[in-house]
Write a protein that binds this DNA or RNA. Sequence first.
DNA 1: CGTTCCCTTGACACCGATCAACTCTGGTGG
DNA 2: CCACCAGAGTTGATCGGTGTCAAGGGAACG
Lengths: 252, 252
Amino acid sequence: MEGRLMQSLFVRKLSTFSPLSPDSERELERATRDIRAFKSGDVVLRSGDVPQRAHAILEGFACRYKLLPDGKRQILDFLIPGDLCDGHMLFMAEMDHNVAALSACRIAIIPHATLLHLTERRPDVARALWWSALVQESIAREWIVNVGRRFGEQRVGHLLCEICFRLAAVGLVRDREYQLPLTQLDLADATGLSAVHINRVLQRLRADGLIRLRSGKLTVNDLRRLEEFSGFDPAYLHPRAPVRTPRISLSA
Amino acid sequence: MEGRLMQSLFVRKLSTFSPLSPDSERELERATRDIRAFKSGDVVLRSGDVPQRAHAILEGFACRYKLLPDGKRQILDFLIPGDLCDGHMLFMAEMDHNVAALSACRIAIIPHATLLHLTERRPDVARALWWSALVQESIAREWIVNVGRRFGEQRVGHLLCEICFRLAAVGLVRDREYQLPLTQLDLADATGLSAVHINRVLQRLRADGLIRLRSGKLTVNDLRRLEEFSGFDPAYLHPRAPVRTPRISLSA
DNA sequence: CGTTCCCTTGACACCGATCAACTCTGGTGG
DNA sequence: CCACCAGAGTTGATCGGTGTCAAGGGAACG
């Protein structure tokens, strides 16, 4: 829908991390014109890969995950429109986890060379990328708390709150509702629970009137109550702009 | 012990992330001359703080943690000599978690102004700091897997492997042994288990001949076996130097 | 219009929490 | 030097959250 608009979600989101100059936005926009479609289940990045191109979600849901020797899967993060899948690969040697599409996705492919070149000449871009890595770190830490110390109901509630806030930040929440193209198995692997248990947890959340979830559409009946119930505090998403905005320039 | 040597662990570790020029090392060294002692239990950084100074561990163990409304604690990471507690605070608005000493610690206090100034003039320093943030992110993700999808024995085993590798990287492992000044409650809060259960897990690991743990000293009898048992793969610690080393300069 | 996921439900097992007591250790002061 | 004390480690009994297994129902897609 609205090709041009959706395309710029990546740039828009980056600029909320740290303001971008119009020129930088234009150049980033130009760099994200190579768009590929992925089907649900497609693997975008594989552990051990040494990717030469960066991937930015424009539409759809994806996730980071790791597989254990015994076949169990742990989802590490959901990737929503505007998210960069592999920002760290600009510097690191190889992927240490996988990324796969959880729904049909449109993903922008950006050669590292282009992104590096852009970053070298544009301090605001470098700053935004660095900042986005810090937010990801912060989200990962909250996930540790989620799987480590909360009960099933709170885990799921907390996760749904996080997704709500993150989607809202890119304008994908309307009337307390958002598209959630996730399987109960996906929710299970994100929360460290089993699919059967997720099913029962969802039923209880529905029975308590906290959420409605039908055919991929989630409705939060009372966000305040769900936050309270789940122990959710959006501070860890660092929604505001950074305090200091030093000029960062990457020059070759 | 050996004041001068210990002091430079922070600099030494940073330079393993990304090589530092002798000048940068010298300047960093000079910036870390303000050293404070902390007792076990002392809170170094509190959630909500807006610190004006960065903290680097020179000696001892500390941890990041969050407290839940019901009083439960989840440890998010252990901070060992060489680690920067709050690198992200150079950019972010406020702390979203706490940092406390788990043993007697010596911690270098570096004013943000100094660190920023240094970073602005020295691309190699900026690059090393960015890189260190990426490694922290990677560690946090592996912790999600640990608490989400492993059994008690493997969780603890995996954690002990990680600490072993990280301590070894700063030269604090000798003869498969290292100082582990952690309470069983600390291990519990790091693995999402209860203190009682940790006790039983440790007994089983000892009985299986995998480890020895007495009076704060941990011995790994057979690292290969412990890794295999715990599903540990050090790749996520990204021990090697970054592939690309673009010049990053922060200029005000 | 049938195949394939996905969701749902029930029975049962088990990992790990909780509670409560006891022991050990290291440090302190008389 | 020893008695004491507080914190940490240990143990047993019991409870409960969550996993596993197995079967059936529903909805989407070709």
